[in-house]
Computed example of a mutant assay.
Amino acid sequence: MSSNLDSLPDSIDSAMGSNCMDQILEEAFKIGGRDKKGRCVLRIVGKFFPARELIADGGMELLRSFLERRVFPALGGAPFVVVYMHAHAQRAENYPGLSALRSVYEALPADVRDGIRAVYFVHPGLQARIFFATFGRFFFSAGLYGKLRYVNRLEFLWQHIRRREVEVPEFVQDHDDELEHRPLMDYGLVESDRHHRAFDAPAMDTAASMHSLRCIS
Rank of each mutant, 00 (worst) to 15 (best):
N152A: 12
R137I: 05
N152K: 05
M21R: 02
R117Q: 12
M16W: 07
D22N: 06
A51S: 08
L213T: 05
S7P: 00
I116P: 02
I216V: 14
L54S: 04
L179S: 08
S7D: 13
D193H: 10
E61L: 08
R214K: 15
R34K: 15
R34W: 04
Y187W: 10
E27V: 08
N94Q: 05
V83L: 03
I130F: 11
E155Q: 14
D111F: 11
D200L: 10
A118G: 04
F156Y: 15
F49Q: 03
Y95S: 12
V45G: 00
R137E: 08
L98C: 04
F131I: 10
N19K: 13
R117I: 03
F140I: 02
F72Y: 15
E155N: 12
F29H: 03
P96G: 07
D177G: 04
R137H: 13
R129E: 07
L213E: 07
D57E: 11
R182T: 07
A133D: 12
L75Y: 03
P50H: 00
Y187I: 01
L144V: 05
Y145S: 15
F121E: 09
L184A: 15
A28E: 01
R153N: 09
D114M: 04
G33L: 01
D57R: 13
R214P: 05
M16N: 13
F49V: 02
E180K: 14
E180Q: 15
E68N: 13
M210G: 07
Q159Y: 04
Y187F: 10
H175Q: 02
P183T: 02
M185I: 08
G77V: 01
R43G: 05
A89T: 05
G32K: 00
A15F: 08
P202I: 07
E61Q: 14
S2K: 09
D174I: 03
M16Y: 13
A74C: 11
A89E: 01
F199A: 09
G33A: 06
R70A: 09
R137V: 11
L62C: 09
M85K: 02
R194Q: 15
L63W: 01
M21I: 06
R34L: 10
V166M: 09
S2G: 10
T134S: 09
R149H: 12
R129G: 04
F48C: 07
L63H: 02
G46F: 03
R43K: 12
G143V: 13
Y84G: 07
V45I: 11
R70V: 06
T134P: 01
S7R: 11
H88P: 01
V119P: 01
L189F: 12
P73W: 00
A92Q: 06
E167M: 06
E180R: 10
L62G: 05
S209A: 14
H86S: 10
V83T: 02
H88F: 08
A92S: 13
L213M: 14
Q90T: 08
D6E: 12
R214W: 09
K37Y: 07
F131D: 06
G188A: 11
R137P: 00
S65G: 12
D200S: 14
D205M: 11
S212N: 07
F48A: 09
L63C: 06
G58N: 03
E155L: 05
V119S: 06
R163Q: 15
D6I: 11
K147M: 12
Q127S: 15
R182F: 10
G143E: 13
E53C: 08
